[in-house]
Design a protein around this nucleic acid. Structure first.
Lengths: 147, 147
DNA sequence: TCAAGAAGTGTCATAAAGTGTCAGGAAAGA
DNA sequence: TCTTTCCTGACACTTTATGACACTTCTTGA
């Protein structure tokens, strides 16, 4: 499970050091994809390849499913670590998330997210808005123990 | 699997450099075919020959299946790389996809697609239309973990 | 049949992008 | 405090894409 929050810097070539604790949980590499917000979502090989194989089973004769394949596969990249534990984030993905220098790496359980530090600051501000917290999440009803 | 998105330029003779990571997955060449949208679809030899052999089993006494065979086979080309990793896209295929100079090469899992950069930009704009994203794909319900 | 033009292919130089290496300093743990 | 691990920035090196040019093959029409 990916926990915690880190702020790391891209180097001049767009490489990002992945926190050592995250690397240990995904030794063989990662998949980086576009998130639904202005961020990137990073999966382990195992999890993303499961998604990909489900997608590959969609019929290519259906226009909607073609569009979905196109969107997911074209906005994803398989990345591996260099000898210093960094990954190269493809330029097009950096662009969609507005990532230029400071990056927030935020654990999210099975996956983790990458945010430009600026965007993260805004998102975080709304998470902490008093008044929102109490009611916003009620609908999800998350149990603390398995059923 | 073909992942990610690249923008490359045709040279004056209509040749396109295939991204090195894609070439590695299809060392012996490619098949280029017309897509269902205004694009081209590129398969590995292995996959396309599978499709072709399935098509060949369709009855020739049925007019619809004759039409399908005709469409697929006549709008496909087997291409190989030159010494610089480029393929020559046949002029008729370039025409149907409106490909002239800048080309977007988009991974789609088992295959990848070629788009004129202009057409891609339009397609992409509709993919990213706010409001569409959340609901459009719900029906597909792709799980991240096996059941 | 031949010549001329078009189309296709190979080669090279250059610039951009990607990758490896290493040393220094910050941070964390003992 | 000392030791170890981790992140970062700089630099060197390799790979990749592209644009230009030369050469070959094919097509077409005289």
């Amino acid at each position: 499970m990916f926990f915690g929050q880190f702020e790391h810097n891209l180097d001049a070539k767009g490489r990002l050091t992945i926190p050592a604790t995250f690397r240990e949980q995904a030794l063989d590499g990662l998949y980086v994809t576009e998130g639904f917000e202005a961020n990137l979502v990073v999966y382990t090989l195992r999890d993303f390849e499961q998604i990909a194989s489900n997608l590959s089973r969609l019929s290519i004769t259906n226009a909607e499913s073609r569009a979905l394949r196109r969107k997911i596969f074209s906005s994803s990249a398989k990345v591996s670590y260099d000898t210093a534990g960094r990954i190269l984030i493809p330029a097009n993905l950096r662009a969609v998330a507005g990532i230029e220098d400071a990056v927030v790496i935020a654990g999210a359980g099975d996956y983790f997210e990458l945010w430009s530090a600026k965007t993260w600051a805004k998102e975080n501000a709304s998470l902490n808005d008093s008044g929102m917290n109490s009611s916003r999440w009620e609908a999800f009803d998350i149990p603390t123990r398995g059923a």
